[in-house]
Amino acid sequence: MKKNSHFKLLWNSFLFNLHYLPLKQAIKIPIFIYNPTYISKLGTIKIEGHIKKGMIHLGKYSCPMYNKGIKWDNKGSIIFKGHCHIGNESFVSVGKNGILTIGEDVTNTGKLKIICAKEITIDEHNRLGWETLIMDTSFHPLFDIEKQTFLPAIRSVHIGANNWLGMQCVVMPGANTPEHCIFGLRSIITRNAPIESYCTHGGTPLHIIRRNVKRILGKDQIEY
């Protein structure tokens, strides 16, 4: 049974790679996709740098709290700059004019939601907690009565390198974080929030809780 499951994973992943990548890259199967539900595959995928088998995992069963698989809705452009792990029950949606860029060593355990209408950039060595939501659009523009015009409903998002987003964080349109930031449980990260490097942020509205701290990858786990 396990052999059949492994063969199914490799076969489905090979077809996924073949759809998106040049043949020389596709035959290496750099992207493993687990139990996908496809909404759209009209867009493109580009992998920059050295290509290695299984360097990108999409929807891998990593967290027992969530169901298996990933929902995939790509009508735009997705760029991977290295290794990436997106956990189970996640949803990735890129609109026809959207560009999603994911840096080297970006990891999520489960239930990540990314909605990209224009541009979302996630730099290297990011850790995205359970149920993180990243979106560059509110979908519904408001009308400014005095100026007689609609306010922008789409703003680019940039998450700096070595950020750590705790469980259920929400990254709103226009957010721009520097490197080495930590965001606590259910932080709402907006474009005007006070954000500094080497700080822990939290609360509503977002504020700095502690300065001069950082997460050291590889030395940041406890036994459970």
Score class of each variant (00 low, 15 high):
L9C: 05
C169Y: 04
D73N: 06
V213G: 11
A175V: 00
D136G: 00
S77K: 13
E124G: 04
V157I: 01
T107W: 09
I79R: 00
K2R: 07
W72S: 00
H125S: 15
D144Y: 09
K118V: 08
I51D: 07
I27M: 05
T137S: 15
N192E: 15
I27H: 00
I79K: 06
Q168T: 12
P64Y: 14
T200G: 02
K214F: 15
T137M: 10
I195M: 02
I86L: 07
S93A: 11
K219L: 12
V92H: 02
Q168F: 11
E131W: 04
W130S: 07
I39M: 08
A153N: 13
G202T: 03
K75S: 15
G160N: 05
N35P: 02
R210N: 15
G95H: 12
I70N: 05
I189H: 08
I78Q: 04
V157P: 05
L151Y: 02
K68E: 15
R191H: 11
Q148P: 00
M172Y: 07
M135A: 03
H125L: 12
N88I: 03
S197F: 10
H83Q: 14
I195Q: 00
N192W: 09
K28S: 10
K24T: 13
S138I: 15
V106W: 01
L206Y: 10
A161I: 05
E89H: 08
L142V: 09
W72D: 07
I182K: 01
F7S: 11
I31W: 00
C181Q: 13
L151N: 01
T204F: 13
G103R: 08
R215H: 02
N97K: 12
L128K: 13
I78Y: 06
L15D: 00
N12K: 03
E131F: 06
L165A: 09
H6T: 10
W11K: 12
P64Q: 12
K214G: 11
